[in-house]
C-alpha cells in the first residue's frame, strides 16, 4: 500500500533530531509538525519571521498579526522569537536552520528540484523556496512518486523550471524513501507491501537497488 499524506509526514518526522531548527514548507511538510516524536524538542521556523511556531489557535486566541508562511493563523510557544524577513533569511542562508522539508513537482537524480512554476499554467512566484533549497544543510522532499497521469516525478532531468540545483538529499514519497547520490536515486526503504517492480516502474531517473530493501517502519 502506498503511503498517504499523513504517513509520509510521519516517516519524515522520524528524521528529526533533538534540538533541530526546522523549516516546513506548505502542504505535506506542514503535517510533519503533527508527528514530531514526544521525546525530542525541535523548534519550527516560519520564514515570515518567527522561531517557535506552535499549533493553530482557538477562536479566542486567534491574532491577525500572528501567521505562518502559508498565511495561516498560528500560535507561539515559550522561547519563541519574532524578527524581520532579512533576519529570517539570514538564519536560512547562514546555515543556522538544520533541516528544510518541502514539496516538489519534480526532482532529478542530481538533486535538482522544480517546485514553483508550471509555464502557461501556474506562475505564482517562488516565495522563499529558492533561498531555502540553496542554503539548507539538509533538504528532504515530501512528494508523490508519480503525477495524476501516472508519470514519474523522479526524473533523470527536471522538465519544469528549477527551484535549485544539486540540493535535495532525501526523498520520502508515497512509495519509497530514497537518497540522492552521485550515481542516482538510491532506494533505502519501500512502503509496506510496495514491490521493487512498482518502484522501478514509477522511477524514470537512475534507480540504485543494493541488498535487501526493508519496508518503512512507523
Amino acid at each position: 500500500m502506498a503511503l498517504d499524506k499523513n504517513q509520509i509526514a510521519k516517516r519524515i518526522a522520524s528524521e528529526l533530531k533533538d534540538g533541530d531548527y526546522v523549516n516546513l514548507g506548505i502542504g505535506i511538510p506542514t503535517l510533519v509538525a503533527n508527528f514530531i516524536p514526544e521525546n525530542i524538542h525541535v523548534t519550527l521556523q516560519s520564514e515570515n519571521g518567527m522561531l517557535g511556531m506552535g499549533p493553530f489557535p482557538t477562536m479566542e486566541t486567534v491574532d491577525a498579526d500572528l501567521i505562518n508562511a502559508g498565511k495561516q493563523t498560528i500560535t507561539y510557544l515559550p522561547g519563541s522569537s519574532f524578527f524581520d524577513s532579512a533576519t529570517s533569511f539570514a538564519m536560512i542562508r547562514g546555515g543556522h536552520i538544520d533541516i528544510t522539508i518541502l514539496g516538489a513537482f519534480e526532482v532529478s537524480e542530481k538533486g535538482d528540484i522544480a517546485s514553483w512554476k508550471v509555464p502557461g499554467k501556474l506562475i505564482k512566484g517562488m516565495g522563499g523556496a529558492m533561498d531555502l533549497v540553496a542554503s539548507a544543510k539538509n533538504i528532504i522532499v515530501a512528494m508523490q512518486h508519480t503525477n495524476k497521469e501516472g508519470q514519474s516525478k523522479l526524473l533523470r532531468k527536471c522538465t519544469l523550471p528549477l527551484t535549485g540545483v544539486n540540493c535535495v538529499k532525501r526523498i520520502v514519497s508515497d512509495l519509497a524513501v530514497l537518497d540522492v547520490t552521485e550515481k542516482g536515486f538510491k532506494l533505502k526503504e519501500r512502503a509496506p507491501g510496495v514491490t521493487l517492480e512498482q518502484i522501478k516502474t514509477a522511477t524514470e531517473g537512475t534507480l540504485i537497488i543494493e541488498g535487501d530493501i526493508p519496508e518503512i517502519k512507523f
Partner: peptide
Amino acid sequence: PQGTLAERIRAGGAGIPAFFVPAG
C-alpha cells in the same frame, strides 16, 4: 526569491550596492 528580496531591500537601506547569494 524572498530572502534575496529582503536582503536587497536591507542592502538598499544599509548602503551596500550589491552582494552575492546562492539562491537562484
